[in-house]
Simulated scan of single mutants.
Amino acid sequence: MASVTVEQRAQVIVLGNEKGGSGKSTCAMHLIVGLLRDGYRVGAIDLDARQATLTAYLAAREAFAAGRGIALPLPRRAAVHRSNNDSRAAAEAEESERFAAAMGELGRSCDIVVIDCPGSDTFLSRLGHAQADTLVTPINDSFVDFAMLAKVDPENHEVVHPSIYSEMVWEARKRRFSRDRGRIDWIVMRNRLGASEARNKRDVGAALEALAKRIGFRTVKGFGERVIFRELYLQGLTLMDVKEAGLGIQMGMSHVAARAELRSLIGAIRRPPPKQQVSPPAA
């Protein structure tokens, strides 16, 4: 893999996995806004510029704030595009330069940089993973998504061996340690936990616990399945923006629970205290 030199002062949180539909971009959006509201200067890098989910969300957020004349917190942002060069070596060198430039700019001006990686194994995704201080991997709470982390025995659900993605994270950890003796804190976020299918939930949890001890990650409870996440995406909003955005949405118990899930995730991420003070977010 081509080397990349990044001038970096900010803490880096990477959202990564290799399976779509797990809530990775939803997690990235809410982390960014939650950290902004906690007083951090936040940078956002979209490494999946072709899909551009995070880029589209942030553009919609900026447009909504301008159209309504309200001040929503916004991150500094950058999108890193894949190279079109036919030569693999030249393409990787070009992508390395683009990534280093984005990280250099945001790393100097922000406290925390959140990187949203593509849901596939690409060179840019590997660059992003290797820069992480914290790697957050959202998965749906099922053995379908668990297969991204490891192969399990279908009879007893014991872990047979780690997956290709887990091996990629291991390589990223080695590159990170070799570069600056830094360590990647890996968090696996269990999304869409439900009250039903209790046996499957228990079996997935047991398999995750066994794998966590084997390859070194922590597990946290993620986000439930909520329609409002998809509705707010089109306007570039999160649950923390509902009151000041003036949408007229009544905050029910489901919304309160969703906010608690986000605060729990942010609380699980090791980070420095914010350098600026802000008023507490509106309830």
Rank of each mutant, 00 (worst) to 15 (best):
D133M: 01
G119K: 05
G69S: 04
G236S: 05
A195M: 13
A63F: 10
Q8K: 14
V4I: 11
V204W: 03
G248K: 03
W170N: 08
N85R: 14
Q8Y: 03
S96I: 04
N200P: 04
L234W: 13
G252Q: 09
N84H: 15
P154C: 08
V80N: 00
N140R: 05
F64R: 02
P274L: 06
A102S: 09
I13Y: 02
A206K: 09
E62R: 11
A60Y: 05
G39N: 06
I139Y: 00
M168K: 09
D38E: 14
V160C: 13
V160H: 14
D153Y: 13
G43C: 06
E197A: 14
M251A: 11
A150N: 02
A282E: 15
E225W: 08
R9A: 09
M1A: 14
L265S: 01
W186G: 00
E18A: 08
I70L: 12
H255A: 14
R9K: 14
S178H: 10
E231H: 14
W186A: 02
N140E: 13
R77W: 05
G194E: 12
A78T: 11
E105Y: 05
C110Q: 07
D203V: 13
D48V: 15
K174W: 10
P272I: 15
P73M: 09
N17M: 13
D203F: 08
E231D: 14
E95R: 06
K221T: 11
F143C: 07
R88W: 13
A90Q: 15
Q8C: 10
R9E: 11
G224M: 09
R37T: 08
G23Q: 06
P273K: 15
R202M: 10
A210I: 02
A282Q: 15
H81F: 15
V6D: 03
L74P: 02
N140M: 05
M240P: 04
T134L: 01
A212T: 01
L247E: 05
L239A: 04
A132V: 01
E7R: 13
I269D: 01
Y165C: 06
A207L: 10
S109G: 03
V14D: 00
V204G: 02
R37G: 04
R190W: 02
E209R: 07
M29G: 08
A206Y: 11
R214T: 05
T137R: 07
L135Y: 01
N156Y: 13
V33E: 07
T55M: 00
T219P: 04
L237F: 01
D121E: 10
S196K: 12
E105I: 06
